[in-house]
Simulated assay, not measured.
Amino acid sequence: MTVRRPANPLALAVLGLLLEQPRHPHAMAAALRERGLDSAFKLTTGSLYDTVRALARDGWIEADGTEQVGGRPARTVYRHTPEGRARFTEWLDELIREPSPEFPRFVSALTYLGALGPRRAAEALRERAAALEAGLAAGESAYQAAREDHGVPRLFVIEAEYARAMAEAELRWVRATAEEIERGALPWPEGDGHA
């Protein structure tokens, strides 16, 4: 029997959080935002609740009681089912072991970089470099706050280290390519956009 895996990548985040402790969706959202993971997963209230319902329907997680704070409505707390935890770790193992094609927008846009012309292409790359630098600085602050201020173990934020390494590599490439364009070392087809 083939196990139906969640279509929404947010399911990974939900299942990961439930490894730590049972939680209700509101606490899941708060933890994802606090850790800066709302930038890695498309997080809306609707998508989170839809994901939780789908995981419960498919037997990955189950209700583990309710929690009520003050006059707020009672919230259903969820935990892994034993089978759901096993499925999650199998899925995770596969995702880590087996590279799969990803289709980032930036790579798609690079395919047509020549259409911008050398000046505009270099300007666009320089602007991207500045945005990457700002993102790296903000990410580093969030990482340090999680590790030092909140005592989050390194293993629980290791994806931030990976994201930092990827952003640093992209930044190096973007800067080097902009520099090549600016000094004329990257040949541009004749008559192709001197914008």
Rank of each mutant, 00 (worst) to 15 (best):
153 P>Q: 07
167 A>M: 07
171 L>I: 00
111 T>G: 12
89 T>H: 13
123 E>L: 12
121 A>N: 01
176 A>H: 06
154 R>H: 10
39 S>C: 05
14 V>L: 03
12 L>W: 10
13 A>P: 03
159 E>A: 13
163 A>G: 10
123 E>K: 10
108 S>F: 13
190 E>R: 13
135 G>P: 02
130 A>Y: 02
33 R>G: 10
133 E>H: 00
125 L>G: 03
15 L>Y: 03
149 D>E: 15
16 G>D: 10
174 V>C: 05
91 W>I: 01
187 P>S: 04
127 E>P: 05
76 T>W: 07
40 A>N: 04
176 A>D: 12
97 R>L: 12
13 A>V: 06
167 A>D: 03
74 A>E: 15
195 A>L: 15
118 P>A: 03
147 R>S: 05
121 A>Y: 02
31 A>F: 05
53 R>K: 14
68 Q>S: 13
76 T>H: 05
99 P>M: 05
30 A>N: 09
88 F>R: 03
64 D>R: 06
161 E>C: 01
106 F>K: 02
103 F>C: 11
10 L>Q: 01
143 Y>V: 04
3 V>Q: 15
138 A>N: 07
70 G>M: 07
130 A>S: 13
143 Y>D: 04
76 T>C: 07
187 P>D: 10
168 E>K: 00
135 G>H: 05
16 G>E: 07
56 A>P: 09
187 P>E: 11
167 A>I: 02
188 W>H: 04
142 A>I: 03
